[in-house]
């Protein structure tokens, strides 16, 4: 079922309850939100406000208990398990707080993994990996394995993995939480720059003021609801 709009993400009365001993514990309580293509948006709020659950729901990693999510006009609840996997593979890039690289794959292999799933020919994969490694300042690190590089370098690789397949949406959950402020700022600037140059949409879940400073929209969640939606002029 298609929504038939030009919005990248549309949520309608989106809700998620977890169950604790049979009793429902609401994490997200009826969020109506629209994200446009090309936005650099921060979802902020205190711990337990529903930021991560919201990101899980709009990426199809978790199923809502109420409401709907459309991503690129596609109703996520209408997709099967494999269709959801393919949809995430082709349209969403993920950046995690703990980097979450695949430890048995080296830097180049981690970055090209999604392209491999997409069936991108090897020659093109290598070219694109080479380009993005230069872009993130990691050229020469192709054969290093994740445990052998620093946290900041691992997060760069994670950013490269998220972007190399050129998805429309990058979801980043606390991407700077494990980094020192200098490296965090550097990576945020890099992502901001990529957002401006490529038009990819970035959606952050964060506590980090550095992210909020760079975002052109800050959505504040409180107790699973949108408490504030602050749009700023693009700088």
């Amino acid at each position: 079922m298609d929504k038939g709009t030009d919005h990248l993400i549309v949520t309608e009365s989106l809700a998620k309850d977890y169950f604790d001993g049979g009793a429902p514990v609401p994490a997200v309580r009826g969020i109506d939100l629209t994200i446009e293509a090309g936005e650099f948006t921060a979802i902020v709020g205190p711990s337990g406000s529903g930021k991560t659950t919201f990101l899980n729901l709009i990426s199809g990693l978790d199923a809502p208990t109420g409401g709907k999510v459309w991503l690129k006009d596609k109703l996520l609840s209408g997709l099967s398990g494999n269709e959801l996997s393919d949809f995430r593979r082709d349209h969403i890039g993920f950046i995690f707080q703990a980097y979450n690289l695949i430890p048995v794959l080296n830097v180049r292999e981690n970055i090209e993994y999604i392209m491999l799933l997409q069936g991108v020919p090897e020659k093109e994969r290598r070219e694109r990996v080479g380009e993005i490694l230069k872009e993130i300042g990691m050229a020469g690190f192709e054969r290093r394995f994740p445990p052998k590089i620093s946290g900041g370098q691992q997060q760069r690789v994670a950013i490269a993995r998220a972007m190399v397949s050129r998805p429309e949406l990058i979801l980043a959950d606390e991407p700077t939480a494990n980094l020192d402020s200098g490296i965090g700022a550097e990576l945020l600037d890099m992502m901001r720059d990529l957002n401006r140059r490529t038009g990819m949409t970035f959606l952050f879940s964060t506590h980090d003021p550095m992210v909020m400073d760079r975002a052109d929209r800050v959505v504040t969640l409180h107790d699973g609801r949108v408490a504030k939606d602050d749009r700023r002029a693009r700088t």
């Binding site: 990426s59 494999n82 996997s85 393919d86 593979r89 993920f94 979450n100 695949i102 430890p103 993994y113």
Partner: peptide
């Protein structure tokens, strides 16, 4: 499990 969760999150099908 966390690693398999990651693989699934980034688009790996269950069969793989």
């Amino acid at each position: 499990r966390r690693e398999y969760g990651l693989l699934k999150a980034i688009g790996t099908r269950a069969g793989r």
